[in-house]
Design a protein around this nucleic acid. Structure first.
Lengths: 231, 231, 231, 231
DNA sequence: TATGAATGAGAGTTCATTCAT
DNA sequence: CATGAATGAACTCTCATTCAT
């Protein structure tokens, strides 16, 4: 094939790939939509296909199995999470602020997009052979950790040891997840509390504890009373 | 009807009710068993009936719908939870100890019986028309709060205000739930942490914070270092 | 339970069992019908159910899997085969006649019911996990051998050794199967031959060969020329 | 069009035809491969296309339907069968040897390539609208007969009449097919016999019977005992 | 010629639920 | 009270085939 023809061929392939990717994304969007409306169990291939304007069989041109769709959905979700955490992080004026920002952004992402949390737990929980290969699993795990990295880094900068930082991040993650679940299932109302405020409280305490010896560049005038969650 | 006949009729009804309750309990036990072995999705009416020694149709003599079984199961689960939390509580030598005991027992129950957590979240999450009437829902909510009451009471005794105690209990509940979920989905391994230890840490901090002015009757020699989770 | 009640209960169970068996047989008949009309591949659960006047799911009250239907069909077929072979065998006047009768009845059964041959080969060929358990397989194999037993016995009576009899039976079985297949696929026409006559020829030769030293009680006047298939 | 241009056009057409035929053959080879590995049912157009390095749609440039592929495959198979039978036939030292050679080669081909037998029976059995036109059917039938011709000729040379030869060939073909089927479905093991030996036995008997009056040029010292299959 | 997305039909199977008995 | 057959809808997934590009 002549170089010219080769290039044309390449262009054609690219064009096709672009279209194909767009359609895949479209199906994924439909899947997310269905999933948001009817939950994970209600999200059948039929329903996803219908939403996307396809027949069920057509879906299998883009995904090998239903679980692969979920895998892709989770991957996408984690990317958005990372983006959300990173956004505005550079503007933080101090390590304390960075820690708070990173943590609250993490929380905020899932507070705003509750279905992404379901997705994460469903998939991280138990997956069928297809869809979540060990490699994909590792990659997704990595992206989750990535999203918590900024918080961890800030803690380290505040003087925490590696071990302490890791433990605090883990505990924070758990706290977040718990609050979010309570929020999603409306359980938090039962306790007449606001999960966002509780999370902020928790993060502040962690930051105070870790950064006790590291004077904040901008003194934290607004939050003097930290003896109890509810002053 | 003569008073005598009326009494007899009542006795007959009572007898029937006792038998019926026993059978209901038996089916519930079977359901719990199936549910523990195969998870929520794997637990079909057929399977539960088989386990209980019945045919599928028979189940509907005792429960109106599958979800009602789950509701009953959750009710039962919450009773066991309350029992677990109460057990040995009287033997605690101090309010600090009572607080720790109540909290860790709560955690321990779900750590030991992970399926009960699933159950709780499945049902508290979203339920179909049958199965979780508002009244039942309220009752179950109440029992959940009951299980956290001992912890709350201990905090109050340690000097917390009503608001603080409620907030701390809520936050603790969330923390617990988060840790347990991470544990169940093996996510906690990802962070190379132990959820039990993290929970203990969390509880200790709460107790220290609240009980700062209330000297423990038995000085807590074994846990002097509370500056960081990972010393 | 009183003996009377027990007996009644037993009767009720029997009645139910009879009805159930009849329905099972009805489904089997429908399956055989579908199978005869559309072949093994065309015989879907849906089609069988429709034929039997059921919805697809109902079939699974009687059979655990599609292949179990085939298994049952084959079992039934082999019973009919055995019956066919046994019929009129007692009336045979000599061992030679018995041998001929047993062999030709075997052939005749499959010549008359070509689908039963398909069934046998499909199932004996390769079966999925369900439907043809090793035990069932062994039982079916046994019934097939049973159907050839009368022929084998007759050969033994005619003086064949055990080994010779077994080999002759095997060869006869193969010959039969080959002829029947050619017949069913109309290949035999291609050769302008009649498979029934060829089979008779084959059997006669075997009988002559084995029974050479064992004078027939009724001299076989009608078949003097055995030098070639086509005299 | 000028004669020159016409010739050029013809050349172009020829070139195209050659290329097309080569690709067709390539697809056929892929189909055979798939079919050998996964059987008739497992051989999907998708799989064949993948093996051949094509996409499913491309296959339809060369074959109108899946069944046509099978038809072509069978045609090819029969050519190979004819080749196999012919090979080394000239070296046979006597008519008896030729007969034995031709027959056992026929048997050997299918014993070695069991899938070709499946193919033959699948197609010769029942075919859908496409794939096996009467003409193709006639041609394939012809090739099958061709493969049996050498055996028939040898029998004629040994003195058989036309009718006898045809009948014997038919019977042999059936015997072969039966043995091969028993072999393929492992049924022959059930009888603890070896199908190859049984076939040889059968052929020897036919040859002895037919060639009784025609002394073999090379006396058959090695096979003196022909009174029973199992001496 | 080749692509590959898309169709439409269909496969086996499962399930909660109902209901005559 | 208990049975168990039956429903009807749903499930994921596969396939031969078509067709615009």
């Amino acid at each position: 094939m002549s170089p010219v023809a080769e290039e044309r061929e390449q262009q054609r392939r690219d064009r096709k790939a672009v279209v194909s990717d767009a359609k895949r994304a479209h199906i994924l969007a439909a899947a997310r939509h269905v999933f948001e409306e009817r939950g994970l169990d209600g999200a059948s291939i039929r329903e996803i296909a219908k939403q996307a304007g396809y027949t069920p069989g057509a879906i299998y041109s883009y995904f090998d199995a239903k679980e692969e769709i979920y895998g892709a959905l989770l991957g996408e979700s984690l990317e958005r999470l990372n983006d959300a955490v990173a956004e505005g992080l550079g503007a933080a004026a101090s390590d304390r602020a960075r820690a708070r920002h990173a943590a609250m952004r993490f929380y905020g992402f899932y507070a705003t997009n509750p279905r992404d949390l379901d997705l994460g737990f469903y998939l991280f929980g138990g997956m069928r052979p297809h869809g979540l290969t060990p490699e994909l699993n590792a990659r997704l795990n990595g992206r989750l950790r990535d999203a918590l990295k900024p918080f961890e880094d800030a803690l380290l900068r505040l003087g925490a040891t590696q071990d302490t930082a890791r433990a605090e991040v883990t505990a924070f993650f758990a706290h977040c997840v718990g609050l979010l679940l309570l929020e999603n299932t409306k359980r938090i109302r039962m306790f007449q509390e606001d999960s966002g405020r509780l999370c902020e409280c928790y993060v502040d305490r962690v930051v105070e504890r870790i950064g006790a010896d590291s004077p904040d560049t901008i003194p934290n005038i607004n939050r003097p009373q930290r003896d109890a969650i509810n002053p």
